[in-house]
Protein backbone atom coordinates (compact mmCIF):
# COMPACT_ATOMS: atom_id res chain seq x y z
CA UNK A 1 0.00 0.00 0.00
CA UNK A 2 3.05 2.20 0.27
CA UNK A 3 3.74 2.48 -3.44
CA UNK A 4 3.51 5.97 -4.88
CA UNK A 5 2.37 6.30 -8.45
CA UNK A 6 3.07 9.42 -10.53
CA UNK A 7 -0.05 10.70 -12.29
CA UNK A 8 -0.87 13.70 -14.45
CA UNK A 9 -3.61 16.05 -13.31
CA UNK A 10 -6.25 16.42 -16.02
CA UNK A 11 -9.00 18.40 -14.33
CA UNK A 12 -9.49 19.90 -10.87
CA UNK A 13 -12.82 20.21 -9.11
CA UNK A 14 -12.46 21.58 -5.58
CA UNK A 15 -10.20 19.22 -3.65
CA UNK A 16 -10.73 16.41 -6.14
CA UNK A 17 -8.79 15.94 -9.36
CA UNK A 18 -9.12 13.63 -12.31
CA UNK A 19 -5.64 12.17 -12.83
CA UNK A 20 -4.17 9.88 -15.46
CA UNK A 21 -1.28 7.42 -15.70
CA UNK A 22 -0.64 4.86 -18.41
CA UNK A 23 -4.07 5.49 -19.95
CA UNK A 24 -5.86 4.84 -16.67
CA UNK A 25 -7.83 7.65 -15.03
CA UNK A 26 -8.53 7.96 -11.31
CA UNK A 27 -10.13 10.39 -8.93
CA UNK A 28 -7.46 11.78 -6.62
CA UNK A 29 -7.75 14.01 -3.57
CA UNK A 30 -5.60 17.14 -3.46
CA UNK A 31 -6.47 17.74 0.20
CA UNK A 32 -2.93 16.97 1.42
CA UNK A 33 -1.40 19.67 -0.77
CA UNK A 34 -1.43 23.35 0.11
CA UNK A 35 -4.07 25.28 -1.84
CA UNK A 36 -3.28 26.24 -5.45
CA UNK A 37 -0.21 23.97 -5.52
CA UNK A 38 -1.17 22.19 -8.71
CA UNK A 39 -2.94 23.00 -11.96
CA UNK A 40 -4.25 20.85 -14.78
CA UNK A 41 -1.27 19.43 -16.68
CA UNK A 42 0.94 19.14 -13.57
CA UNK A 43 2.24 15.84 -12.22
CA UNK A 44 1.75 14.51 -8.70
CA UNK A 45 2.74 11.43 -6.72
CA UNK A 46 -0.37 9.59 -5.58
CA UNK A 47 -0.54 7.40 -2.48
CA UNK A 48 -3.78 5.59 -1.63
CA UNK A 49 -5.78 8.07 -3.71
CA UNK A 50 -4.16 11.20 -2.27
CA UNK A 51 -1.60 13.43 -3.99
CA UNK A 52 1.32 13.75 -1.56
CA UNK A 53 3.61 15.98 -3.64
CA UNK A 54 3.89 17.79 -6.93
CA UNK A 55 6.65 16.46 -9.20
CA UNK A 56 8.20 17.33 -12.55
CA UNK A 57 7.20 15.71 -15.84
CA UNK A 58 10.68 14.18 -16.07
CA UNK A 59 10.44 12.59 -12.64
CA UNK A 60 7.06 11.13 -13.54
CA UNK A 61 8.40 9.72 -16.80
CA UNK A 62 11.43 8.01 -15.25
CA UNK A 63 9.22 6.39 -12.59
CA UNK A 64 6.78 5.17 -15.25
CA UNK A 65 9.64 3.61 -17.22
CA UNK A 66 10.80 1.74 -14.12
CA UNK A 67 7.29 0.47 -13.46
CA UNK A 68 7.00 -0.76 -17.03
CA UNK A 69 10.23 -2.71 -16.54
CA UNK A 70 8.85 -4.23 -13.34
CA UNK A 71 5.64 -5.22 -15.09
CA UNK A 72 7.64 -7.03 -17.75
CA UNK A 73 9.68 -8.87 -15.12
CA UNK A 74 6.60 -9.83 -13.18
CA UNK A 75 4.94 -11.15 -16.31
CA UNK A 76 7.92 -13.35 -17.13
CA UNK A 77 8.46 -14.79 -13.70
CA UNK A 78 5.03 -14.86 -12.13
CA UNK A 79 3.71 -17.96 -10.40
CA UNK A 80 0.02 -18.86 -10.45
CA UNK A 81 -0.60 -16.15 -7.88
CA UNK A 82 1.70 -13.41 -9.11
CA UNK A 83 2.53 -10.40 -7.06
CA UNK A 84 0.25 -7.63 -8.25
CA UNK A 85 2.29 -5.43 -10.60
CA UNK A 86 2.09 -1.71 -10.09
CA UNK A 87 0.40 -0.87 -13.39
CA UNK A 88 -2.11 -3.63 -12.82
CA UNK A 89 -2.62 -2.41 -9.29
CA UNK A 90 -3.53 1.02 -10.59
CA UNK A 91 -5.88 -0.49 -13.13
CA UNK A 92 -7.63 -2.64 -10.52
CA UNK A 93 -7.66 -0.43 -7.49
CA UNK A 94 -7.16 3.19 -8.36
CA UNK A 95 -4.17 5.29 -7.43
CA UNK A 96 -2.66 3.56 -4.49
Amino acid sequence: MCLGIPMQVKEINGFMARCEAGGVEREVSLFMLAENTVQAGDYVIVHVGYAIQKITAQEARSAWELYDDMLRLDGELADETPMVPIGQLLRDNGGR
Partner: peptide, 17 residues
Protein backbone atom coordinates in the same frame (compact mmCIF):
# COMPACT_ATOMS: atom_id res chain seq x y z
CA UNK B 1 -6.31 1.37 8.55
CA UNK B 2 -2.85 -0.16 8.77
CA UNK B 3 0.16 1.52 7.22
CA UNK B 4 3.19 3.74 7.61
CA UNK B 5 3.21 7.54 7.45
CA UNK B 6 2.49 7.65 3.71
CA UNK B 7 -0.77 5.79 4.28
CA UNK B 8 -1.68 7.23 7.66
CA UNK B 9 -1.30 10.84 6.47
CA UNK B 10 -4.07 10.36 3.86
CA UNK B 11 -6.23 8.89 6.65
CA UNK B 12 -5.53 12.06 8.65
CA UNK B 13 -6.48 14.16 5.61
CA UNK B 14 -9.74 12.21 5.35
CA UNK B 15 -10.50 12.93 9.03
CA UNK B 16 -9.68 16.63 8.65
CA UNK B 17 -11.75 17.10 5.51
Amino acid sequence: AAGFETTTAPVAAMLQE
